[in-house]
Simulated scan of single mutants.
Amino acid sequence: METLSGSICRACRHKLLKPSTTRTFSTSSSRLYIPPESPAYIDVPRPLQQVRDIKPRAKGILPLPRELFPARRPDKPSTRYLENVTRDPLPKNVPSEDSLTETGRYKRRMAELRKTHLRSGLKELHARKTSIDSSIAARSAAKQRERARLLTQPEREDARLTNVSIPSAMRPQKIHVLSPEEQQEIYSARLAAHQANLAAKHEDRLDKLHTLYMNARNFITTKEQLTAAIDKAFEKNTSIWDTGMPETVLEMIQRGQDKNAVHGRGGVTLAGDLAERAAKDQERMKKIAERLSGGKL
């Protein structure tokens, strides 16, 4: 047994070299004849309970099954649909049996077999789908009825008598079921609010469109207008800092809080103040005119 050929696989060699169950009378160990390449050379303890083999995880995802009977094709399992998809050839296109070869006869039998399988398969699948849908609908209706019964059932007498004292304000209130009149009133109020919101959006859209139309006269649409606007903006060759430092924010705030600000800085009327008040008056008058006329000016 120790001179076995090396061409034998390890599993077969392990079975051949498995120790005998008969009792031996030798004083040497019974595992001396196991070769080192054998899996049984080292005694590995095994658990008493059988270890469950973990199946490897299948990589990838399965595609979604195709819907054979969609809602947009209610005529699919009908007899007319089966006749259209398994249409027989016209009599003038059917050759005689004698003129066909063995291959032609085989193809004809396969075509008839495919048509038969398609008819029977569609019928069986539709019957299965109908039965499954009906069972699902029945279970769903039964669950809904059971839920409604549990929600509306009265409290048990033993539970009522053994309950602790709870104020009525702290008890769970039952859901108020709206009557058809209340539902119609709520619907009318929400519909009126929705229509008012749409009307406000429409008026705002019209106002923005009118503003865009009135401001279109100042749009730059040609190169000549762009050149004129650039020349007008950069026609001054002097710096704005030549007239002195501009007013700080603190000075403007103090001037706004001064009681004599209507007469200028410190009671002195300046040309800049007159121009500023005139611009503000023009802006106010323009807003008043727009509000009275209902459109942008």
Rank of each mutant, 00 (worst) to 15 (best):
R13D: 06
R13I: 06
L16F: 08
L17T: 02
K18Q: 00
K18L: 04
K18Y: 04
S20D: 01
R23W: 06
T27Y: 03
S29V: 08
S29H: 12
R31P: 05
I34P: 01
P39K: 07
P39E: 00
Y41F: 12
D43M: 05
P45S: 08
I61L: 08
L62C: 11
P63V: 06
L64F: 08
P65D: 11
R66D: 15
E67P: 03
E67Q: 06
A71S: 06
A71H: 06
D75K: 01
Y81K: 02
E83M: 06
E83H: 02
V85I: 08
T86G: 02
T86H: 00
R87W: 00
V94F: 03
V94S: 04
T101W: 00
T101P: 01
R105P: 11
R105G: 14
Y106I: 09
K107H: 06
K107C: 07
R109Q: 14
L118P: 00
R119K: 12
S120G: 02
G121W: 13
L122G: 03
E124Y: 08
R128A: 15
R128M: 15
R145M: 15
R149V: 09
L150Q: 05
I166R: 07
P167C: 04
P167H: 02
K174T: 07
I175D: 00
L178S: 09
E181A: 12
Y187A: 11
R190T: 11
A196E: 11
A196K: 03
N197I: 04
A200E: 10
K201N: 11
H202C: 00
L206C: 01
D207L: 15
D207H: 11
K208E: 10
L209Y: 04
H210D: 14
A216H: 01
R217D: 13
F219D: 00
T222A: 09
T222Q: 01
E224C: 03
Q225D: 11
A228R: 05
A229W: 04
S239W: 04
W241E: 00
T243N: 13
M245W: 14
M245I: 11
L250C: 13
M252K: 07
Q254K: 07
R255P: 03
G264K: 04
L270H: 15
R277P: 03
Q282C: 14
K286V: 03
I288T: 09
R291K: 02
G295H: 10
K296M: 05
L297Y: 01
